[in-house]
Design a binder for these strands. Structure first.
Length: 380
RNA sequence: GCGUCGGUGGCGGAGUGGUCAAUCGCAACAGACUGUAAAUCUGUCGCCUUUUCAGGCUACGUAGGUUCGAAUCCUACCCGACGCA
């Protein structure tokens, strides 16, 4: 179980300051949740995440941990916290995103957010992805590693998540593709809602269960979903999928959704979080959100800074003796020059990826800390 | 000294008469990435003309030659590897 309290509500927007206490840690919201798909925030140890990136909540993945190493192994280790030696709070995503990423996402070669101008084939009602099969009971996957068949439905997901042992677990949903037709999303939504009820009755543990609001880019479906999930016995809310092809439509949609959610329960936005998204997302009433961006971009050589993105592969940093961001208080910025980090990245040294991951997460959290302060001061 | 094989763009290495500014790999340069299979993917990569499905120039060790046409054939020279003295 978790405790959530709201410490301040903005008068200027739907933003709120909050406090979450889980069996493992407590922290202030809004905050960004680093992604630890395979029980590691890639390149960082649990201690490093906790002590060097200001992150007290991370999110791991049910589907991937089920395949490797298997939930039983994690259980034998005493649960995911002791397994990965992270003493903060942990969420597990249910595997619902893999219904998209290994399904239509893979077929259409698209991400969950479509860039404006990019045309993706519409997914019509009744369509099935090539490599997985979505049924009323759950989803037949193929393991990305060896191709073996894996079935995941609401009961299976909840059971696996119980063994993994995170503080907060998510209901099994279908994350619909951004190009899904209205009819497809409508039908999928009914299934996701049914699955939520099955998740609720399957849950035996004391873990907090978050139900997920879907509905794609269709406002009435989003409202319908928010109302349904709000009516269920859940401890909080996840908001998933895509919200339209521009940032403005995302904020509008999120404001619509949160308006239908009881304010005393926490809201987690799944898989969104470029720095330019922070303010619109937080202003629309989101408490936590996870994103691969800080770590994923780090491994591709990008540093996020108060002066924008830096592509650390570029030769212009070869002899730059200043830190990534002079305003940043992270270990990487306090210790190393851009010249050194540029060298590490060019030389494909692992430390470079690690320092950028550490910096990016710290930078994201610091930026959000400033936003929290602005809410506190009544500016936002 | 004789013989054999070889010298190709930053590097490695294809190509053996025209469709070759030259396959490919690496490096370099630029870009993408939003509930992470992928530390990955995409583009550019001789020089010049504003970018161009456009045009011009210089290129395959050096210098000549054969040919309508040569990185590709011939001659000489230089350099390298190996073999024999």
């Amino acid at each position: 179980m978790i405790q959530f309290s709201i410490t301040k509500e903005s008068k200027k927007s739907r933003a709120r300051l909050g406090h979450i206490k889980t069996p493992h840690a407590e922290f202030e919201t809004p905050c960004m949740v680093p992604v630890a798909t395979q029980a590691t925030v890639k390149t960082l140890s649990g201690d490093e995440v906790l002590e060097k990136t200001k992150s007290k909540l991370i999110i791991a993945n049910t589907f991937h941990l089920h395949i490797k190493p298997g939930e039983k192994t994690i259980k034998r280790n005493g649960g995911i916290h002791t397994f990965m030696k992270y003493s903060g709070s942990i969420m597990t995503d249910s595997g619902g995103f893999q219904v998209f990423s290994l399904g239509f996402g893979s077929d259409l070669q698209t991400n969950k957010v479509i860039r404006a101008g990019k045309n993706i084939q519409t997914v019509a009602i009744g369509a099935q992805p090539k490599h997985i099969r979505i049924t009323d009971k759950g989803v037949y996957f193929r393991s990305p590693h060896d191709g073996r068949k894996i079935f995941l439905g609401p009961k299976e997901s909840i059971k696996i998540q119980a063994d993994i042992g995170a503080d907060i677990i998510f209901a099994f949903d279908e994350c619909t593709p951004p190009s899904a037709s209205y009819e497809y999303v409508k039908q999928s939504l009914e299934k996701t809602h049914r699955w939520l009820q099955e998740c609720i009755s399957a849950k035996k543990s004391r873990q907090a269960l978050f139900g997920i609001v879907q509905g794609g880019r269709y406002k009435d479906l989003r409202i319908q979903s928010a109302q349904f999930v709000a009516s269920q016995k859940v401890d909080g809310f996840g908001i998933g999928g895509e919200f339209g092809s521009n940032k403005k439509s995302m904020q509008t949609m999120l404001e619509t959704v949160t308006a239908y959610l009881p304010k005393e329960k926490p809201r987690h936005l799944l898989g969104i979080g470029h720095p330019e998204d922070f303010i619109p997302v937080i202003k629309s009433g989101i408490d936590t959100f996870d994103c691969i961006v800080p770590t994923h971009y780090a491994r591709h050589g990008t540093a996020f800074t108060s002066r924008g993105r830096l592509n650390m592969k570029q030769a212009r940093f070869k002899n730059s003796l200043t830190p990534l961001d002079p305003l940043c208080g992270c270990e990487a910025c306090g210790t190393y020059t851009k010249s050194y980090i540029h060298h590490l990245i060019k030389a494909k040294e692992i430390l470079g990826l690690k320092l950028l991951s550490l910096h990016n997460i710290y930078f994201f959290q610091s930026t959000i800390e400033k936003i929290r302060n602005n809410i506190k001061k009544g500016i936002l």
